[in-house]
Design a protein around this nucleic acid. Structure first.
Lengths: 216, 216
DNA sequence: TAGATTGTTAATCGATTAACAATC
DNA sequence: TAGATTGTTAATCGATTAACAATC
């Protein structure tokens, strides 16, 4: 089997990943009171080509006007609907180190419809404290609480060796989507969705490109 | 122009991104004192298929033995050499918030050959202090210091609106590779390499897959 | 109107996967 | 030896890019 992913709605993964970038730029345009925007303009800003932008946007169901472009407000809404940002999803975060703290405090995920309800750790010093309005609880409460509150997303910011066991607990608690920052390939059932943020991969690519460029 | 990337050594980007994962698994094998490993074994562990593993590994120049597999130690070295991990590269980090702190403290990047030499911020409260053995300096010193010490990598962990100007400073300072955590498309000259960690894209993909799975 | 832009259908390109001979 | 595994060459698949008619 390949690195096959649970059926998602026909959109290619790269297109899906580009959509938030379009949204971001469109939001800037609304501040400038622009009513319409062309694929050409978007492409220039994001260093893409117009045809690619049109293809990507088409997946959201938006319909543009020839000669005019896309209606900015409608397009923003189309992207948000498509990405399901309006549907708030509850999330638990486990592992309140610096990275966990950064994610808890960062306001930007609300607009993606993700709301961190509680955070968990195993260290007695921080359990009971509050960060960015979020209570830090003991990991042991994770599973039962997840079940009770019907939490859908689990954010894993624990060290590598704890990641799998935390993932297991989350899954038992009924969590369906994992956002994983630990450098591990999580072993999970088919019906669970995972996105891993692979920092080592990203930095390695940078180093490799750098050494190639310099060598040349 | 597409999202074209500076000439890197013929390896496809997806293969390049998978290499650190292979390395990680191989390191575990050495602890178990395994001498050889087959593509099949690696594939199972990382949920890939053997042929893909063989193709990826071939880029490093490793030569395996039919029927036996790949020599683990040699393979580890081949990956490290290929990714240029043995060649230590100096890095500056700008933006000492929680995320910046997390990256400074994280030990794992040393093995990728990246050494954070100094960190920068604009907030007087933390300038002068030390985090994880790293001095926090004022951003104004960034450019001249980068030039003097010959720093190659810049890590950008500042808020969105500061990212571009920091990138500019880094480039003036002679930095050639940017590791960017701000949700911005940086505008940079051709000879500069960028890897952006796009958290919004990652989380959006998760949300979309989740809503598709649940809807079904 | 003329020209810019959309959306559709086709062509290209590159990564993944398959087939298979070579080999330990 | 027989069978598992590598590495190479070919086929497939999917994303990107091109071509072009439709249209405001």
């Amino acid at each position: 089997m390949p690195q096959s992913i649970p059926s998602y709605s026909g959109i290619p993964m790269p297109s899906l990943r580009r959509l938030p970038g379009y949204h971001h730029f469109l939001k800037q345009l609304t501040e400038l009171k622009e009513e319409y925007v062309s694929a050409t303009t978007i492409a220039q800003e994001l260093k893409l080509i117009p045809i690619q932008v049109r293809k990507d946007l088409a997946y959201t169901g938006i319909i543009g006007k020839p000669k005019v472009g896309y209606p900015v407000k409608e397009l923003i809404i189309a992207i948000e609907e498509f990405l399901d940002w309006n549907n708030t999803k509850k999330a638990f975060l486990v592992g309140v180190g610096d990275l966990g703290r950064a994610i808890i405090k960062y306001q930007g995920f609300h607009k993606l419809g993700v709301e961190i309800i509680a955070a968990f750790d195993s260290s007695p010093e921080i359990i009971g404290s509050t960060i960015g309005g979020i209570k830090i609880l003991h990991v042991d409460k994770l599973t039962t609480l997840a079940k009770r509150i019907n939490v859908k997303i689990g954010i894993i910011t624990v060290p590598e060796d704890a990641a799998q066991s935390i993932a297991d607990k989350m899954i038992v608690g009924g969590i369906k989507g994992l956002w994983n920052f630990a450098p591990v390939k999580l072993k999970i059932p088919r019906d669970i969705v995972v996105q891993s943020v692979n920092l080592a991969a990203s930095l390695s690519v940078l180093c490799k490109q750098l050494s190639d460029v310099i060598k040349k």
